[in-house]
């Protein structure tokens, strides 16, 4: 069963504005449904117990794709496949193919670290390293071979500006990252992912550990990423999914394994769901 969004030219974004490619990524304008990641017959199990069964979907370049569904339906697991974080989980088996720009990322010859530079990830719980703010950003850069003083400083600043943190922390870049507030920490983690200039950002419930205000700030921030990055976001907040996503994928647990029920343009999935389960799930939103 392969469900993909329909190809119908430029998809207008939620607010109807036209988005253009940002300075960090050259390519076609936003939300032309050009497949960047093709998930093809993906199944995943932990120590023999299946967690995802036969999932196929396309993720479009420059768009925001939301993954929704009840707890335990394998959303996090799917995200971890996209940057091969599943490699770190003992006993995790992945079958099927994930093509990133036409190349299978789970084939053996892939340079995993280079892949993870292209595909950044933001976790549910903010996890800045116990270092200074500056070193949090410089460390990944140095790791990927960027060592020039001025270049480092420029990229640190640019990424902090991108997440709207620059004015708040520019005077204490050498202060501890862990002394920031939760919302600031989460934005620092986003800056840390952005500083590597990835093409794709995976976000696993990035707002769920934050208070409503910080959550709104982060949500606005994600909005600004549209067009410049391909964003895949897991969220339990259906309102949020509706507000920011161009595409949405709905997962459900069938026979103890997560399956993809429906994948469509976000507005259509919420307003004219084709599947009863989807309809029931998103109706929860309307109360």
């Amino acid at each position: 069963m392969t469900i993909t969004g329909e190809s119908e030219g430029l998809v207008e974004a939620v607010d109807g504005k036209a988005y253009t490619v940002g300075p960090l990524l050259s390519g076609p304008p936003c939300c032309r449904p050009e497949t960047q990641i093709r998930v093809d017959g993906l199944s995943l199990g932990y120590g023999g117990k299946p967690a995802l069964k036969d999932v196929s979907l396309d993720i479009y370049r420059g768009c925001i794709t939301a993954l929704i569904g009840p707890s335990g339906c394998g959303k996090t697991s799917l995200l971890s496949c996209l940057n091969r974080l599943t490699d770190l989980i003992p006993g995790c088996r992945v079958e099927g193919r994930i093509m990133l720009d036409g190349a299978d990322i789970h084939s053996s010859g892939v340079d995993v670290q280079a892949l993870r530079q292209r595909v950044g990830m933001i976790f549910q719980k903010p996890n800045p390293f116990p270092l200074s703010i500056r070193r949090n950003l410089e460390m990944p850069l140095k790791e990927h071979g960027i060592t020039g003083r001025s270049e480092l400083a420029a990229r640190v600043e640019r990424s902090l500006v991108d997440v709207g943190l620059w004015d708040e922390v520019k005077d204490r870049l050498d202060g501890a990252a862990l002394s920031l507030s939760g919302g600031q920490q989460q934005r620092l983690c986003m800056a840390r992912a952005l500083v590597l200039e990835p093409e794709i950002l995976l976000m696993d419930e990035p707002c769920s550990a934050l208070d409503p205000l910080s959550s709104a700030v982060v949500e606005d921030l994600i909005e600004t990423l549209r067009g410049r990055y391909t964003v895949v976001i897991v969220t339990h907040n259906l309102g949020q999914a509706r507000r920011i996503a161009n595409y949405a994928a709905f997962f459900w647990v069938n026979d103890r394994a997560g399956t993809l029920i429906e994948f469509d343009q976000c507005r259509r999935l919420f307003e004219q769901p084709r599947h009863q389960l989807t309809a029931a799930y998103v109706r929860g939103l309307r109360g």
Partner: peptide, 19 residues
């Protein structure tokens, strides 16, 4: 921190030394 470092494409060696 291990996951965070891995997700940034940081080698285990650097993650160990720095974090």
């Amino acid at each position: 921190w291990r996951l965070g470092a891995a997700a940034l494409g940081i080698s285990k060696a650097s993650a160990l030394v720095n974090v």
